[in-house]
Design a protein around this nucleic acid. Structure first.
Lengths: 235, 235
DNA sequence: CGTGCAATTGACGTGGCTCAAGTGGTGTGG
DNA sequence: CCACACCACTTGAGCCACGTCAATTGCACG
């Protein structure tokens, strides 16, 4: 995501004090917990971290980069489940049975913090306030998912795509990036797959948003030129 | 849901031993917790329990009946978020901020168990194993929501509706009802709204499934006549 | 600088939406 | 208990947004 960053592997250690993402990290306040965080993991673009049905060893928080999860339909078509960005926790949907539900792949070079599931499961019993924090986090996750469900059942492709861009913009802002200018880390095909729209339609709608001066688009580089118009479109 | 039941208000008390739904109840094992369960609440068809943006006082588990949550789009159209059945916990998406995200309405006469949110928040700190159980429950909820998201972004209306019916059938089975024969507690309009399909299309697809002898339909009474064909259709 | 995938654009077909008319089922009041 | 009203549901006709197929262009990476 965003203006290409340099990934300095040497700086990667388990010392959360040096972590650029600590503000987004749910675990940061819990010193006891921090000790169970493993060294950061570097994954390259296109690398598959895990496959569906594999045993889940760890939860991961994203320190930088973008990750997607996906699965395959019975016809063998890829079906994207969700995109994850800096600060997001991957694996919440697998805690209950300890098995990855989906394939997990890096969309760009990314760094992750590893949280051993078995240790996580133990520490929940030792630090109730952390458990409560996780419950709140998951509650918010559920709300966001329900909101997304209601987006998908709205009909117009244009609204879905505009909302996707708007939501992405909000996410980036929270993460300290510009919300008006950013790089898409996923392909248009990925976006379409995620939203249930074909690539061609995605492309056509983007051209339309360009023509109507809502967006300035150059490949994966997006500038939201008219934020108000974008918001009005969604509503 | 299912063959019309008689609701005996006299039998409603907080003694979980008499509860017909105890097998589905996450709290049942926790005696300390059971003491904070309030008396059961009876809600009538069409009754609105809570409105979006209201302060959340309690979580609710459904002892019988069906509940829907919904909200309004900026154009003032109702947008259904989710249906809840016997055993489901309502309000998971609101724990994090204590505010109802959506409107909550009974689709038929239903009985609920009330779980005070403030007491819930306290007891989580006292019983870590309950906290963990909630985490697992929420994890599964997240997985189910993600699965539903991937359903909605698949394109064919027929597949969406068939999957809806199949999922409902599975749910009913888990809850001890027949999975081959049941009553829909929601209108076709509700189903369409939920799946992002118009009523007319829902109606047409149902007629088609009837003609192809997969379903036997008489109003809200559904019989799955050919389970295999239904499953094949979905895949 | 070439290879291969990503993205765009056009032409065309169709699934599902819209509009409209009619049927059925249920609850209410006379 | 019937008559009426009201809403849920069904079915048909026509249209349009979006999918499909195909041809090009653009862009990143070795």
């Amino acid at each position: 995501m965003i203006l290409k960053q340099k990934y300095n592997v040497k700086n990667m250690n388990s010392n959360c004090k040096n972590c650029l993402t600590y503000k987004l990290c749910i675990f940061f306040k819990y010193k006891k917990f921090i000790t169970i965080l493993k060294k950061k993991k570097l994954v390259h673009k296109g690398e598959i971290l895990f496959r569906a049905k594999e045993k889940m060893i760890s939860l991961y928080t994203i320190q930088s980069g973008t990750i997607k999860t996906y699965n395959f339909t019975k016809q063998g078509n890829e079906q994207i489940i969700k995109f994850y960005f800096k600060g997001d926790l991957i694996g919440l949907d697998s805690i209950y049975n300890g098995i990855y539900s989906n394939f997990i792949k890096a969309l760009e070079t990314s760094t992750l913090c590893e949280v051993s599931l078995s240790k996580f499961n133990k520490i929940i019993f030792q630090i109730p306030s952390l458990g409560y924090k996780i419950i709140k986090l998951m509650s918010k996750e559920i709300k966001i998912n329900l909101y997304f469900i209601s987006l998908l059942s709205r009909k117009k492709a244009e609204i879905k795509l505009a909302t996707f861009i708007y939501d992405l913009s909000k996410k980036l802002k929270i993460r300290g990036y510009s919300h008006k200018e950013f790089f898409l880390s996923m392909t248009r095909s990925d976006i379409g797959n995620y939203l249930g729209i074909t690539v061609e339609t995605i492309s056509r709608i983007l051209s339309k948003l360009k023509k109507s001066k809502i967006l300035i688009i150059r490949g994966k580089h997006i500038i939201i030129d008219n934020y108000l118009k974008l918001i009005n479109l969604i509503n």
